[in-house]
Design a protein around this nucleic acid. Structure first.
Lengths: 192, 192
DNA sequence: ATTATCTATAGATCTATAGATAATGC
DNA sequence: ATTATCTATAGATCTATAGATAATGC
């Protein structure tokens, strides 16, 4: 049953990506190694030829999630990003959504190494929300503060909305209210 | 080993309060029934004379946490509340802190019944942040929106700060920035 | 010869239950 | 007689490992 080196590496990457989705959906403790390997199409014994432990995988799976959301950076308008981030679709699709919002609660109880990965993930989000060309910047000193604030605001709205029952009016209200307020806080585009 | 009816009820309440703290510290899956009962001073078999299941306890423990933080309501100035909420002490003392921030990530993966408890908890937080007497209210329509926004902002800042490594500059920066910005967003007190 | 994967299982842990114990409360 | 708690354990599950298998890659 041996495969090529390249195939083994692809298999490993596939396990990390599968874990990235499953962890976001069910949390770290909600996914067993056997569950994960079955979802990735393998038997569970093989896991330990790829990773030293399940905790090891957690860090890789989180980093994988952050790097994927980073792909969108700068390509997407900030207003559009906020509108999508605080949409019902994003709230109801945890597996494909923001790793930070899905797992930051779990991260708080993990070892320092994993928290370091999440701190990098936060910096990635800040970079993604940096205004692009053509925006009237806030004063330099205040710019980073404004971005941090928006990220906290958006993540808070999403995690609170997800803690409400499905189809609860409060869940939708939180998303709508915070979406409106964050969009209103964005600096206007300069008119050329 | 039997105790009086009153004592049994007190024991039950003590188990719920102990669970409320331990769940906030370690998460729902991080506390076993045996762990919990030992922490409360009992053997684990007795648990099931008090609760139908561990999931049942989760709802009670969350409700207990929400009702305790509700006690502070209206007694405390909103600025003071925000300042404490976004303090290092609160961030580093999960067991005694906000149940919403500590467990909303776990709640998102729990059954509807528990999510309903968390929705009530959110409404409690909104009520706690309602401006008291003597404040220049925002227009009625906008008031609830402003409060929801502040709660999301504060919860988001706390959960992000907790996901960072201990003593990380970013963790402190998030708290400080959001504290300043939320305080600045509060309506000024009217001068008599 | 090496190694990615599989089969099988050890050892630990977790939820829940069954039955015993001993003190309450009718 | 009832019942809160304890002791002991059943049954399930989970992480991790050991050894077998079979195909790669020197």
């Amino acid at each position: 049953m041996r495969v090529t080196k390249a195939q083994a590496q692809a298999n490993r990457a596939h396990i990390v990506e599968t874990a990235s989705v499953l962890f976001r959906e069910r949390g770290y403790d909600g996914v067993s190694v056997a569950d994960l390997m079955a979802a990735a199409g393998f038997t569970h014994g093989g896991f330990y030829k790829h990773f030293a432990s399940k905790a090891d995988l957690m860090a890789e799976a989180a980093a994988c999630g952050f790097s994927q959301s980073l792909e969108n950076r700068a390509q997407v308008d900030i207003s559009e990003f906020i509108t999508r981030y605080l949409s019902r679709e994003h709230r109801d699709g945890r597996g494909m959504g923001c790793t930070m919002a899905a797992l930051c609660g779990d991260a708080a109880r993990q070892p320092e190494e994993i928290k370091a990965t999440f701190a990098s993930g936060i910096e990635n989000m800040l970079a993604a929300l940096e205004p692009g060309e053509g925006a009237q910047d806030e004063t330099g000193q205040q710019l980073r503060a404004a971005i941090i604030s928006r990220v906290a605001h958006a993540v808070g709205a999403l995690v609170l909305s997800r803690a409400c029952p499905d189809d609860s009016p409060l869940a939708d209200e939180i998303l709508a209210v915070c979406r409106t307020r964050i969009l209103a806080s964005l600096p206007p585009l300069s008119v050329d």
